[in-house]
Every structure is written in C-alpha cells, then in structure tokens.
Amino acid sequence: MDDPQQNPHSAKRTGRILRILPLAIFVLALAAIFASGLHRSFSFETFMRYQAWLQDHVAAHRLTMLGLFAVIYAAAVTLSLPVSALLTTVGGYLFGWAVGGLTASVAATLGATGLFLVARTSLGGPLLESAGVRIQALAAGFRTQAFFYLLSLRLIPAVPFWLTNLAAAFFGMPARTFVLATQLGILPVSLAFAFAGSGLDEALSRHEKLLAECQAADRSDCAVDFDPRSLLTPEFLIALAILGFLALVPAALKYRRKRSAGED
C-alpha cells in the first residue's frame, strides 16, 4: 500500500514529467529531421525535380494530397522549419491560389498553435514565474493588447513566425486569442504567396533553362537559387505593412484613453 505522505511528491514529479514531455518530443523530432537530412528536401530544387510527379498525384488523388500537404505544413511550422513561404507557394501552384492559400493558412495556424502549446506547457510558466518585475509588467501589457499586437505581427511577413509564437506563449497569451489572431493575420499573407505560386510556370521554365545550361557546361556548382519572396511585389509588401500598422491603431487609442483618464 502506498504511503499517503509520498503521494504529493509523486504527483509533483508526475506533473513535472508531463510538463517537460511535449518539449522532449519536440527536440527529438527536430533532431531526427536534421540527423536524417530530411530538412534539405524542403527546397525549390527538390520541388522542380518532383514537379511532374506531384502534379500527376494531385490530379489522381487531390483530397489525399491536399491533406498530406496540410499535415506536412503544420508539422514544419510546429518544428519551426523556415519553409512556410516555399510550401505556400507550392500549394498555390498545385491546388490553385484559393484552395492552396486557405489550406496553408489553416495548417500554419495549427502548426503555430502546436509550438505555442509546447512552449507554454514546458517553458512559459516557469520562465514567467522566475522573471523580474519589469518582465512581468511587459507580459501583463502584452496580455492587455494581445490580439492587436499579434494580428499586426502576423500581417508583416518580415517578423519571424516562430519568434512570435514563442513570445505569445511566454507572455501568457490566451490560446483562443492566439488562434483567432493568427488565423486572421496569416490568411492574407498565405493567399498572397499562393496567388504568386499559381503563376509559377514562368519562374519554373526560367530556372529549368538556367539549370540545363549550367549542366551542359559541365559545371559542378549547378543549383537552383530561388526565393519565393521574390514573387511578391514591393507594393504588396507595403500594403501588408500598412495593415499591420492599422491593426495597432485600436490598441494605441485604448492606451491613450486610459492614460488620459489616469491624468484626469
């Protein structure tokens, strides 16, 4: 029979293990991907190599391939692999800009939520509990205007996606607010990259020609150097930045009203 006095210690130890378990799984999965070299498969050159194969399978098994695309996308975002722009562009090319963009935005939200929950469960609580007064105040301020802050960050692609996920977790942002702001903020960006991907044929033809010319010259440094972000126009990026700024306006007005009330 268990000693009743040992039960609290056992429960505490079990709780600690359960809290660390998501982080352990995350680290092991990330280590396995890099050890196997799978991360190198997420490249534009790999996509070009299997382009025809992917198109054939999408034509024959569209829903299955769409589901597989969503799973791979969500897993990549959860593991913070820097391939979101490439996957969204490929999704727009294979499934059309509307379906590809919407699927990418949902998968990105699921992946971001996965990382958010891992960070908050395993790291967020203990870090905030041991943080100083100023960090606690910053966390409280982020919670007050969390939705508008996160929405503006999602609308600006230059901000690292994984960093925003971790910051929201560390500062104690409610999960429901995180999911809503992420989905609303990432949708226009996803549709933009997917729309760019739907017209990828010209870029593919150009890079295939350059690669063939390089290989014909017997060069050993032949590679495809392509960034999906190059498909987005400066005008569109400026528009996204303006949207991000406008998302902060309600928070700024609310802060100004509170400050004016305090002075009165």
Rank of each mutant, 00 (worst) to 15 (best):
G141P: 00
L123Q: 11
F44S: 12
Q6G: 10
A107K: 07
S190I: 06
T233N: 11
M48C: 13
A108Q: 06
S105R: 12
G101Y: 04
A247W: 08
L211A: 11
R40N: 11
W53N: 14
I20F: 13
L18I: 12
F195D: 10
E129S: 14
V106K: 01
A167S: 15
A140P: 04
G197K: 09
L81E: 03
A212M: 12
I238C: 01
L68P: 07
A192Y: 00
T78C: 09
R16N: 15
G197E: 02
L110F: 10
L68Q: 10
G15T: 13
V106P: 07
A168L: 06
L246A: 11
S10Q: 07
E213G: 15
D2Y: 08
L79M: 12
G37L: 00
G262C: 09
T113Y: 06
T78R: 04
G111N: 03
S190Q: 08
S80Y: 10
L87V: 07
P250Q: 03
G172H: 07
D227H: 13
L153T: 01
R134V: 11
A119M: 15
A52N: 12
R229M: 13
F195R: 08
A223G: 00
Y255A: 15
H207L: 00
L21Q: 02
S43N: 14
R134H: 11
T89A: 09
L187T: 15
H9N: 12
L150P: 01
S205L: 12
E235S: 13
M1N: 08
F178H: 07
F148P: 01
L66Y: 07
Q55E: 15
I20E: 04
I72D: 00
F236L: 14
G185Q: 06
L237H: 00
R143D: 05
M173N: 05
A192E: 01
L128Q: 03
D2K: 11
R13D: 04
L38H: 05
G125D: 05
I17M: 14
M65Q: 14
I25R: 03
F95R: 13
V58G: 11
L240Q: 15
S122C: 02
L240C: 13
L30S: 15
A60T: 14
I186R: 07
R19L: 12
E213V: 01
A112V: 08
A241F: 12
L128M: 12
R16C: 11
L66I: 08
D227I: 09
L246K: 07
L151K: 01
C214F: 03
V99H: 13
G91W: 00
L81P: 02
A175N: 02
F142P: 02
L138K: 09
S198H: 10
S152F: 03
L38K: 05
S152R: 03
L153Q: 08
I186A: 14
R143Q: 15
A251W: 03
L191G: 00
P126R: 10
A11L: 14
Y50D: 15
T144C: 07
A181P: 03
A76V: 09
M1H: 06
R154F: 05
V83Y: 06
S36Q: 11
A112H: 06
R134Y: 05
D221E: 05
F178E: 07
Q51F: 01
F95C: 10
S130M: 10
D264A: 14
L210P: 04
L153N: 01
R143F: 03
I186D: 04
A252D: 01
L128T: 01
L184P: 02
L66F: 09
